[in-house]
Design a protein around this nucleic acid. Structure first.
Length: 455
RNA sequence: GGAGAGGUGGCAGAGAGGUCGAAUGCGGCAGACUCGAAAUCUGUUGUACGGAUUUCUCCGUACCGUGGGUUCGAAUCCCACCCUCUCCGCCA
């Protein structure tokens, strides 16, 4: 969420900046809502002040044993009027809130302006694509040949966009997770956390997945929860009823969202709290499955495990002092890159252009790994600085040197997407005979296995 | 699923329609005492929004789990909901 003060002070400037991301800010509407809000709020508060002082007088008069009929008459109709005004104020503030909640973050000044990923800026390339002097297979072919990858059975169990790993392949997947966690906790100073995979609407709102991107998420409710009302959209849930699916009987069922990334539960660790200055930077790493509906990407990456409804990821999250956030982003990026370097996988780093960035990000670097079968680089990590966009939504603050609450900057990045790393290993480490060599650093996690062969 | 207890400031814990943003204690901060420290004493100490001021603040409003109701006035009364804890049952 953007700072409403910035909108008030420089509406045209904000609109121009957001234009570069392809977002048209309705400045006229904002102006109308703001002036209405100002008017209603002023009148409401004046009336509340009057009520408070009068009520106090009544109390004092009664204590003195005086007759209060005269004062009572004075505030006779005040209640109704006040109630109406308070209602209006509530409504306009809700409208403003809704308006603000769907505005994307402002791109950092250094972000290249562009519409599509074609205009992203390549920062560096590390490593050389392997020379494979035989017919290159894609990861599906490699994995199925080894008997470790079984999409047919996964489809029977669940459906499209799920995968099943077996034997050494499943272990390799686990080895990657272990390796990444050990690296980030041991070498990079992150604290490992285990977090819920089902979260409430407030958490989703905090990191920016809601209210705009509900269709990308899986929604879960217990037992016979009525899903009818769940997608009724716009309507703001009554306070205290958020995250509830209203059952036809009038009873409510708890309603959860499956996390699309560990960013959600981990960043929300600090929601609605004020952390002491000296605890910054907070650095967390978590391994979780991620669940995405992939609505709107129907024809893309249908083969293999590139794009799945469920995949594992090791996620890095940092909560930092605003002055340190951009150097922290560079560090976080190198932390993710280290994984690829240790695995000796060729990759490149790109800085996303304004049009390709996610809703909440101010600046994003993508790391793309080389996939021989696709003869191209594919995203394997995304590292972003959200500045105060998420902390404002989450009401996450730290106490600054002056003792005042201040919004920290939040960052996160994949370190890395496990499924895609597995894909990259299978493709880059495949051998002419169909076997796959296991990178040195993973062998301790594989019982010193050096190569996966057809069983 | 059954039975019960409870949600108040950083923490503990009063408060039972009126001057309560909330006693008291602890903790934190500042000062006094001290060579320094401890102890003691004094003062101070929530968050958000709006307005004024423009870096020193000041004023107003809201907030005692959440939402609604009663009332001139609600932390306090009424209703609904959420959450936490204890015991039993079930379960990994």
């Amino acid at each position: 969420m953007l700072d409403i003060q910035v909108l008030r002070n420089d509406l045209a400037g904000v609109a121009a900046r957001l234009e570069t991301r392809g977002y048209r800010l309705d400045t006229a509407r904002f102006g109308q809502m703001e002036s209405a809000r100002k008017d209603i709020q002023t009148r409401t508060q004046e009336l509340q002040a009057k009520r408070n002082t009068t009520s106090r007088q009544i109390g004092q008069a009664k204590a003195r044993g005086e007759d209060v009929a005269a004062i009572m008459a004075e505030v006779a109709g005040l209640g109704e009027e006040l109630k109406a005004l308070e209602g209006q104020l509530e409504q306009i503030q809700q409208e403003l809130q809704t308006f603000l909640a769907v505005i994307p973050n402002m791109p950092h000044a250094s972000v290249p302006v562009g519409r599509t990923e074609a205009e992203n800026a390549e920062i560096r390339r590390i490593g050389n694509p392997p020379v494979l002097d035989f017919e290159v297979r894609d990861h599906v072919s490699v994995g199925e040949h080894l008997g470790g990858l079984d999409f047919e059975t996964a489809t029977r169990i669940s459906g499209a966009r799920f995968s099943l790993l077996k034997g050494p392949m499943a272990r390799l997947h686990r080895a990657l997770v272990q390796f990444m966690l050990d690296l980030h906790t041991g070498q990079h100073g992150y604290t490992e956390v285990y977090v819920p995979y089902l979260v409430n609407a407030e958490s989703m709102h905090g990191t920016g997945q809601l209210p705009k991107f509900e269709e990308d998420l899986f929604v879960v409710s217990a037992g016979s929860g009525d899903t009818e009302r769940m997608h009724s959209g716009e309507g703001v849930a009554p306070e205290g009823m958020e995250g509830r699916a209203v059952h036809s009987s009038g009873k409510s069922q708890p309603r959860f969202y499956l996390i699309p990334t560990a960013e959600v539960p981990v960043t929300n660790l600090v929601r609605d709290s004020i952390v002491p200055l000296e605890t910054l930077p907070l650095k967390y790493v978590a391994h979780t499955p991620c669940f995405r509906s992939e609505a709107g990407s129907y024809g893309r990456d249908t083969r293999g495990m590139i794009r799945q409804h469920q995949f594992d990821k090791v996620e890095l999250v940092q909560i930092v002092h605003p002055e340190q956030s951009y150097s922290a982003l560079e560090q976080l990026l190198t932390h993710a890159e280290t994984v690829l370097q240790e695995l000796d996988l060729p990759y490149r780093v790109v800085k996303l252009c304004t049009g390709d960035m996610g809703f909440s990000a101010a600046l994003t670097y993508d790391i793309e790994v080389w996939l021989p079968a696709q003869n191209t680089y594919r995203e394997i990590s995304s590292c972003s600085n959200f500045e105060t966009f998420q902390s404002r939504r989450m009401h996450a603050r730290f106490r600054n040197a002056q003792g005042k609450p201040e919004l920290p900057h939040t960052l996160n990045g994949s370190g890395l997407a496990v499924g895609r790393t597995l894909v990259a290993l299978l493709e880059n480490y495949q051998q002419a005979d169909g076997s796959v060599v296991i990178p040195e650093v993973l062998r301790p996690y594989m019982g010193n296995l050096e190569r996966i062969r057809k069983s």
